[in-house]
Design a binder for these strands. Sequence first.
DNA 1: ATGGTCGGCAACCGA
Length: 256
Amino acid sequence: MKIATFNANSLRSRLPVILPWLDAHRPDVLCVQETKVQDHEFPLDAIAQTGYTSVFCGEKKYNGVAVLSRHALADVEFGLDDEPNDPARLVCARMGRVWIVNTYIPQGRDRDSDMFAYKIRWFDRLKAFLDRRFTPADPILWMGDFNVARDQRDVYDPKGLWGHVCYCQEVQDALQGVLDWGFVDLFRQFCREPGHYTFWDYRMPYALQRNLGWRLDYIMATQVLAKKATTCHIDIQARAGEKPSDHTFLVAEFDF
DNA sequence: ATGGTCGGCAACCGA
C-alpha cells in the first residue's frame, strides 16, 4: 500500500501537478488540503479519468479537504463532532480495514489572536473525535497539513522562528497530546536528520534553493500500521525556477 | 529588515 498527502493551495490550479503525479506513482490514497473549491465545482471527472474516486468538502476561497483513492471509500465523515465542526478541515474515511483521517489544521494567524486559541483547542477536539470512534489499536493514518513544526530539526532557523504560531511550545504540546494518544511520526521513524522540509514560504526568494523550509505536513500512523511501514519520504516536484511549496508530496509505503 | 507572493476572484484576505 502506498499513501500520500499534498497541500494544494487550490486543487484546480494544481491539477497539472497532481494528475501526472498520480499517473506516475499510483498511490492507493492521496489526501489533499486547501482545495479551495466548492463541492459543485470539484474536478471530479478529471480525477476520475486517472482512475481515482474522490470524497471532498470545500469552501469558496478557503480550506477544503479531499481524499482521492483507487479503492472504494466507506464510512465517510466530514468535520469534528462538536461546533464549529469545520467540515472543510477534516475528512475521515475507511479504505478496507485502514482508516484515513485527513486534516487541515488551522494555521493560527498570530499568537494573541482568537485563531491561535482556536488552533490549540483543535488538537484536543480531534483527540476527543478519535476517542469516540477508535482505540489506538485500530489501523489509523492521520495525515495532512498540521501547521506545526515538531522540533528544531523541522525549521530552517530554530532560534529566529521560535514563537511563530507554527513553531512554539503551545502548538508542539498540543500536537504531542494527540500523538500520545497512539501515533508514530512516520517520516521521523525513517529519518532522524534535520533539514527535511515539506513547506517553503513562496514569499521568500529562492527559499527552496536555500532550503529555508518547514516540516508542517505529516503522516502519523498507529503502531499496528507503523510496524508495517517500509518508507516515508518527501517528494519535491518543483523544477528549477518553480515555486516548490505547492508541489511537495509526502509519501509512505507499507508492506501489505 | 517583520518584508515577500500566490490564489481566489473582484477588494482584500489567508497563508
